[in-house]
Design a protein around this nucleic acid. Structure first.
Lengths: 212, 212
DNA sequence: TAGATTGTTAATCGATTAACAATC
DNA sequence: TAGATTGTTAATCGATTAACAATC
């Protein structure tokens, strides 16, 4: 008995985190007119072993064929689907500071299925280009009642993180992408993904100390 | 035979990535006047098991005492040291776009031992507050000859990533913190740490699909 | 067909968790 | 001293890598 969809259910977290790097290699190859790539070629570009590449890709695609390698066009589709980049999702952003503005201005999110509908802040934005996309924080729950919102992007300072989180939860938004450099507290059903940028600096410093 | 420094050499990567979350909990506790915390209390706040907390912390500190738990002040010092936050390191930033400006304006880096000396861009910055800290890209190697630079922060668009990387390598900077959403190519001795922000969106979408 | 490359089963490696002895 | 909590050894779990059979 094979299931109808053999993929998708058994993708591990490490695999999921490597998929974007495969996507990058594949997309660049396609733009250069390459039709097929072997697992060894893909791995070499990224510093992964060919077995790892095959195992990762086998869990989300059957674009690989013995003898010829992976079909670039097919594989790109499958990776984008596995990552959920093929579906549109809608976000609001809380905290229109430097980081908030950078994210609101980042064009690449369209490629990842993310659209930021509006930014919210206690202060009105001084950035001309964003003026009509930034609303007062008090308007959040009303906005969420009138629009479908899948995700809140949290870019407030650490001190305001728990307050802003409470607003997000009250507005019924089911997931938070947390860029505030602190732990936030949510009810069980709310999904939180932390993106503390400074977090990986410790790893980098450690590598700089030990790898030389 | 015990080594003089029993810590530091056997810290695993997963542990290193959890240390900042411990630091956050510890610092907030200290600000509230708390003197000691047990591994169970720390773990509860972060959603880790108490054994994991003890194992992580034992690898970098001996601030834990049976019966009383962990000394908050001592532990904070030890974590900051393990993460390298106690030493000052100097960076330049390439690509003063939205993300580059956000990083140049982020005050928190001082806490992580990071100081951004200057930004470099092909175009002069239109941001008044940064004007005197942004130099033309052509001045990079000269700047690096005159200043001690440990790290290059790469915030250029994906298409310019490999060119900018070549400049960084030519200038002799030993490590790159790569925010460009693409793979960059460096000689073996250069340390690269990738920080592709959109990368974790795939994981978030997957969790949103499966956890509900 | 012969051979290159895939997908998968088994072996290894590393990290987490459980059990418990050490200790303040 | 008795008991709470640490640090560590052993067991489990999960991910990576090696070996190889399947297949185009």
């Amino acid at each position: 008995m094979t299931t109808i969809n053999p993929f998708a259910s058994n993708v591990t977290k490490p695999t999921l985190l490597r998929l974007p790097s495969y996507l990058d290699v594949i997309q660049r190859a396609r733009k250069e007119g390459v039709r097929r790539l072997s697992s060894a070629e893909i791995g070499k570009e990224l510093g992964y072993g060919s077995v790892q590449v095959r195992k990762d890709l086998a869990s989300i695609s059957n674009a690989g064929k013995p003898r010829t390698g992976f079909d670039v066009v097919q594989l790109e589709k499958d990776i984008r689907k596995a990552l959920g980049y093929d579906e549109q999702r809608y976000a609001v952003l809380l905290g229109v500071g430097h980081m908030g503005r950078a994210l609101m201005n980042y064009i690449g999110f369209a490629e990842n299925g993310l659209q930021i509908l509006a930014g919210f802040d206690v202060k009105p934005s001084d950035d001309e280009s964003l003026k009509d996309k930034v609303l007062p924080l008090s308007a959040l729950s009303d906005f969420c009642a009138k629009n479908h919102v899948d995700l809140a992007i949290l870019t407030v300072p650490a001190e305001q993180a728990d307050n802003a989180t409470a607003e997000i939860v009250a507005a019924g938004i089911p997931a938070i992408w947390n860029f505030a450099p602190t732990t936030i507290h949510v009810p069980e059903h709310v999904i939180v993904q932390n993106e503390n940028i400074a977090e990986s600096l410790g790893l980098l410093w450690y590598r700089m100390k030990t790898e030389n």
